[in-house]
């Protein structure tokens, strides 16, 4: 199922692109779309989004895209940037719904003033009738990410390939991030089915502090044998803490097992080296490209998808990691891939 995922993803990208291609649409239309994002230059995942937006611009000359982002984990700063973007009256906005309560009044105002909005990366978790009236959502399902990663753990544990979970610690660096909370909730629900407790630990973004917090927690919660890092860059920190504490985090030792997210070099090389069990891809490239194309066709022809476009999760583990490493290197480049490795 997951083995051919990168090929399928590429095929998916191509077929979606071809859906909208044709000389007739390549005519020049002078639109300006803004992606307001929480994935800033402090996060290497930004390169997927900006790279795919560049591809979009090349395909639709005349349409300008702009990527605005915060560089820290601050909802307040994100709202300030979003307000600034709306004030410039763009032809469309793509935005992650970091916090539906906080963003609702701002986006309602933008939508009622005629600016089409596409949600990307993080959706409004409320039912369709009650959620913010954006055109559609393009992105992974954060809740499903936690569920699928958790279910995969249970599946492998039942097959006797990895230890059965006894207690899971979720390492979360940002207590205000709705998407990270949803990942944690997904893992909690997956573990609930086998009666395994899950604790969410807010570790903070500073590495030294995060390590200290994890060590304090693991020192008293001896029954924890799985750590779910909701950001891949914190997985090496979790590994080093567990290793220092003698908790045997190497997969082969069947001690403490680390699970993480995203197709980042840290996650992929962690899997390859047997330090991380699994991660997922949420189709970041599509999350940059598709919102722009949806905004374009909405502006030009009034079209909008009738349902959300879910781009992930795709599970990556030992069985398909080599293929994913090749794929990611082909997108970000060999040098950039190496630079992102923090192990």
């Amino acid at each position: 199922m997951t083995k051919h995922a990168p090929r399928r993803l590429v095929a998916g990208i191509l077929s979606l692109c071809s859906l909208f291609t044709g000389a007739v649409f390549a005519q020049t239309d002078h639109y300006r779309f803004i992606m307001v994002s929480h994935i800033g230059s402090n996060d290497p995942n930004m390169n997927w989004l900006t790279g795919s937006m560049k591809t979009f611009e090349e395909k639709y000359p005349g349409v300008k895209t702009q990527y605005l982002s915060t560089n820290e984990y601050s909802l307040q700063n994100f709202i300030a940037i979003l307000n600034q973007a709306i004030a410039t009256h763009p032809d469309g906005i793509a935005v992650p719904i970091l916090n539906s309560q906080a963003l609702q009044p701002i986006l309602d105002k933008a939508i009622s003033s005629g600016i089409p909005v596409v949600a990307f990366n993080i959706s409004d978790p409320r039912p369709v009738g009650q959620r913010i009236k954006y055109l559609t959502y393009v992105g992974g399902d954060e809740y499903l990410t936690g569920v699928k990663l958790g279910e995969h753990v249970v599946e492998l544990a039942n097959a006797g390939k990895i230890p059965k979970p006894t207690r899971v610690m979720v390492a979360n660096h940002d207590a205000t991030h709705q998407g990270l909370k949803a990942r944690a909730r997904g893992m909690t629900d997956a573990m609930k089915k086998i009666n395994v407790p899950v604790d969410e630990l807010i570790i903070g973004a500073d590495p030294a502090q995060a390590r200290s917090v994890m060590q304090s927690y693991l020192g008293t919660h001896k029954d924890v044998n799985y750590i779910f890092c909701v950001a891949s860059w914190s997985s090496p920190w979790a590994y080093s803490v567990a290793d220092q504490m003698g908790l045997k985090p190497k997969l082969a030792d069947k001690g403490l097992t680390i699970v993480t997210v995203d197709e980042s070099p840290d996650a992929l090389e962690g899997i390859k080296d047997g330090k991380v069990l699994e991660c997922n891809s949420q189709g970041f490239w599509l999350q940059g490209y598709l919102p722009m194309e949806i905004l374009y066709f909405n502006k030009k022809m009034g079209m909008s998808p009738i349902s959300d476009v879910v781009t992930g999760p795709i599970i990556i583990d030992q069985t398909n990691v080599d293929e994913w490493i090749k794929f990611v290197k082909s997108v970000v480049g060999e040098e950039a891939y190496k630079k992102q490795l923090t192990w």
Binding site: N42, A205, D206, P207, A208, R211, P236, W237
Partner: peptide, 17 residues
């Protein structure tokens, strides 16, 4: 001292310190 003890880090190094 932080990095000599544990060299795996992130751009968030020192946030809020």
């Amino acid at each position: 001292v932080t990095l000599a003890n544990n060299p795996s880090t992130n751009v968030s190094l020192g946030t809020g310190m």
